[in-house]
Structures are given as structure tokens and as C-alpha cells.
């Protein structure tokens, strides 16, 4: 052993400081929001939890990303013009099931669990209050949904770009990127608000999830029956909770979409109404909750 090594070993100490007072900085409410948001996302995605908790998120993310990978592969392998991949708005048509899965399951996991097991009272005994708690939870749902609403189209953009079949010029590339972000945010916001509203009404996760799924499945059928069957005004399409956010995506990309007979202004307005209406229900429900310990 060298002298230097022996010397450094002699200086070594085992530092077991034990519990002691803390005099340092505290992060404040912003830190509390960040921590609750991140923990909620981890819980939803099964991070730091047993393998069984990861099954659903892995399946949903796979459903969302596999088409993107396939289209990029096709673009790379097959010469341009033979097989055209979907446009960015059309891509959402391939991942609606993943988005529906997330919308139906994320918010109930994030909101209902806390009310059922008493963690809500625990969180409200910290610097958070009801408003800041809901902000943290909303951000968690929004960002988790963003995994399947923002990530795959962005991956397609990157793939097309590296293949040379992406937007022409950096300016156009930025415009497409902006449209992708806006589209993902709009779809996530509307579905976040709706699924959080459903989750605020019941204390059972399954009921909340079923409620969201029923709304997603039933509203297009009802809207289609009213417009196509009963020959009512095309504006009855606006009650289609699930299609309208994706219709908005077409309009953001300047395309007529699946329901060109409905004006863009009406599509924007109804998406805003669903988003703010859903959030209003959540805030109203939580303002009336009696939380004692």
C-alpha cells in the first residue's frame, strides 16, 4: 500500500449525521406543486412501483408510438410518392385509442385515489391549498396526456425531417412544430378537463373511467344520429366531445377536417367550452368538499 493511500484511508470518516434541524432554503408553493405533479405522473405511469403498475401505461404508449415508428420506417424504406404517410392531423386517427385510454384512466388515478385514501387531507396539510393542489393535479394529467398527444406527432415530424420529407425550410418546420404543440395542448386540455370533471363527481375510479369512456363512445354516436339520421343542423356535431378536439387539430393545420360543414369558430368555441366547463365542475366540486383530516 502506498503512503498516500494509507494517509487518505487514515483521514476517512464515517459520517452518520442522524436526524437534525434544517435551517436551509425551502422551495415554497411552487416546489410543492412540482412535487405533487411529478409524483402523480410517476404513480400514473407506474414509475417506482411494481411491474404490474407499468402494464397499462406501456401498452397505451406503445399504441401511440408504434404507428409513428412504422410511418417513419415506411418513409425511409419506400421511395417518396409510392406510399404517402398520413398528414399530422390525420396521424391522430391512428392513436385515438391510446388517447382515449389515457383520458379514461389518468385523471381517475390522479384525483380519485387521493380522496379515497385520505392523501388529499395530507396534501392540504402542506403549503398547498385546494386551488394549488388542483393546479398540480391538472398539470399532471395534462403532461401525462401530452405523452400520447404531443409525443407521437413530434416523433413523426423528426422522422420526416431526417428522411428529408419534412417541411421545407426552417421557418416552415417551426410553424409545423408550433401547430403540433398547439394541437397536442388543445386535445390534452379538453380531455383533461372532461376526465377531471368526471373524476371529481364520483369517489370510485372505475365509475369515473366508465363515465369518460361512455362519453367518448356515446357522444359521437348521438351527434351522428342527430345530424345524419334526424337531419338536424350540422352544428349538433358540436356535442361530440371526443371528435371535436381532433377536429380542432385539422383546423389548426388549415385542413377542412372530418366535419367541414361546422365552422372553425364553432369548433374553437366548443373546445373552449368543454375545457372551461370541465374545469369549472372540478373547482366547484372541490370548493364544496368538506375535508377534515
Amino acid at each position: 500500500m502506498t503512503k498516500a493511500a494509507a494517509s487518505s484511508r487514515g483521514d476517512a470518516q464515517i459520517s452518520a449525521r442522524g436526524f437534525q434541524r434544517y435551517e436551509g432554503e425551502r422551495a415554497g408553493v411552487a416546489g410543492s406543486i412540482r412535487s405533487v405533479m411529478w409524483q402523480s405522473m410517476r404513480a400514473t405511469l407506474g414509475l417506482g412501483r411494481p411491474a404490474k403498475n407499468k402494464i397499462f401505461p406501456v401498452i397505451a404508449v406503445a399504441i401511440a408510438y408504434v404507428p409513428a415508428i412504422v410511418f417513419i420506417g415506411l418513409a425511409v424504406l419506400i421511395p417518396s410518392g409510392i406510399v404517402d404517410g398520413p398528414s399530422y392531423p390525420e396521424y391522430y386517427g391512428f392513436v385515438t385509442s391510446a388517447i382515449a385510454l389515457f383520458a379514461a384512466l389518468v385523471a381517475p388515478e390522479v384525483l380519485v385515489s387521493d380522496r379515497r385514501n385520505g392523501m388529499l387531507a395530507m396534501y392540504l396539510s402542506t403549503p398547498l391549498h385546494r386551488g394549488t393542489y388542483l393546479v398540480a393535479k391538472m398539470l399532471a394529467v395534462l403532461l401525462t396526456l401530452g405523452l400520447v398527444t404531443l409525443g407521437p406527432p413530434f416523433l413523426v415530424l423528426l422522422g420526416y425531417t431526417f428522411d428529408g420529407s419534412g417541411p421545407d425550410g426552417f421557418g416552415n418546420w417551426l410553424i409545423v412544430l408550433f401547430r403540433i404543440i398547439l394541437s397536442g395542448a388543445a386535445v390534452s386540455a379538453a380531455l383533461t378537463a372532461i376526465s377531471m370533471a368526471a373524476s371529481s363527481i364520483t369517489d370510485r375510479r372505475a365509475f369515473a373511467s366508465i363515465g369518460v369512456v361512455l362519453l367518448i363512445l356515446a357522444s359521437p354516436i348521438v351527434a351522428g344520429s342527430l345530424v345524419d339520421g334526424a337531419q338536424l343542423s350540422p352544428n349538433w356535431r358540436l356535442i361530440d366531445v371526443f371528435s371535436m378536439p381532433f377536429e380542432l387539430v385539422f383546423r389548426i393545420f388549415g385542413e377542412p377536417g372530418n366535419f367541414p360543414e361546422v365552422s372553425t369558430l364553432a369548433v374553437i368555441a366548443v373546445n373552449a367550452a368543454w375545457t372551461f366547463g370541465g374545469l369549472t365542475v372540478v373547482v366547484w366540486r372541490y370548493s364544496r368538499l368538506v375535508i377534515a383530516r
Binding site: 412535487s35 395530507m122 403549503p127
Partner: peptide
Amino acid sequence: LAEVKGLP
């Protein structure tokens, strides 16, 4: 919960 209460 320590993080939620503001600790780095």
C-alpha cells in the same frame, strides 16, 4: 411529503 413541504 418532505418535498411537498418545501425541502430541496
